[in-house]
Design a protein around this nucleic acid. Sequence first.
DNA 1: GAGTGGTCTAGACCACGAG
DNA 2: TCGTGGTCTAGACCACTCA
Lengths: 250, 250
Amino acid sequence: MISTMPARPVLAGDAHLPLYRRLCITIAGRIADGHWRPGDMIPSETDLARIYDVAPGTVRKAIETLATDGLIERRHGRGTFVRRSNFDHYMTRFFLFRDASGSELDPESRILSRQVVSGPAPVVSALGLPDGSDLIHLVRHRYWEDAPRLLEDIYLPLHRFGPILTCDIEEIGPLLYPAYERLCGELVCFMEEEITIVPASAQDAAVLGLHSADLIVAIDRWAKDAARQPIEWRRSRGETGRFRYKVKVE
Amino acid sequence: MISTMPARPVLAGDAHLPLYRRLCITIAGRIADGHWRPGDMIPSETDLARIYDVAPGTVRKAIETLATDGLIERRHGRGTFVRRSNFDHYMTRFFLFRDASGSELDPESRILSRQVVSGPAPVVSALGLPDGSDLIHLVRHRYWEDAPRLLEDIYLPLHRFGPILTCDIEEIGPLLYPAYERLCGELVCFMEEEITIVPASAQDAAVLGLHSADLIVAIDRWAKDAARQPIEWRRSRGETGRFRYKVKVE
DNA sequence: GAGTGGTCTAGACCACGAG
DNA sequence: TCGTGGTCTAGACCACTCA
């Protein structure tokens, strides 16, 4: 008879990686595959140590790494939770819209069109998809003080975001990332952006109330899932006068 | 006779702070006061544990914190080193200047003026100094392809940067932060910046070869020492067409 | 080979939050 | 009061760098 050792539960990643790294990957995978959802509390450090048969200190290091990566959030005395992303508010950080008293105004969102396109090629490759992949293309305007101030073209891989195309448009609501999560189970965890200043197209200028070829700010964004795969590409355009960006370095 | 316990060496910070935090503050202080200079190797983890009479794990956590803060740098198998800042190159990341083959071009720096001013008031308060403090004001242009492309007004507190005013101007060289370190012993460790798009002054427009009131990019920067005290404020202006900025979020 | 940081373990006690 | 994360300790062994 072969004696069966109690097997260490499977940890993702190459066996030559440090244990804590493999635990990171495993936990991130559990979040990416929806086993633990945003807002959920994940097992306590002692439980994780027991479950995966590693020392508490190793769990601790893995959890700390994931927390600084922004995937989870630790709350002293309560537990460790999968982080809820709220990146959709993020863009408003670039643009100044305040009422008379100086407090920030929330924009209104209107999706003007929603259709399947194949391409454009630069977007397909920005999303790391094979040539000719189908995309969902959304055109959205965001309004402050009853005027469109931010114009957005948004592209999503059709095979992951079908419900965004087929759902009642009212279901999407003012914020896209919560809608991705609610309707498609897709979670935005990371972003990269590139900011440039370019002449406005005739159409953009007309909507923004500018002259054609006036300069506007363009913000290109790659939104990524927990595995850092890009799942959305968008280009947002707005007036330069409202633009302000703050950076902290190191 | 009173028995004297071997005293734990003085750790900076309130006694109620965690040990590792106090160790962080202590080490950062040693760097800020010039005891350990940029590029120096600091004592090994085991030595620090012995010196400050704490467990190696506690030293480890302090060192890790300082490393993610960017104050020091760990090199496996070699040691832990005070980080050399090289922020002066940083601005070129915002602006695209490439030769025909696409590789980045280094700018040439020219300091056009160097004088003591008292004020302006907004700058004095940006630097956290008392009203009426004396500042050094530098005007610097940075050249790419033999034309001034980036115009800078730089303000420094006189009492910390005297040598910048009195030294031979050739001694300053093309990069300011290494000069601050070499001539004044001042080390830039952190920065904050704010980017806006504004109409060019008549003078800036003339230098940049634009029309008056054409839009330009303005980057305001607060440079800070190891203790996060602001020690330099500058405003840099450049052409919008050359501007590009990349951000990674979380 | 000597010295450094990197990983992993094991366990004690503290501080916080909620019932 | 209980369970959580936060701090601190102590020590083993590995992996990298350099002389």
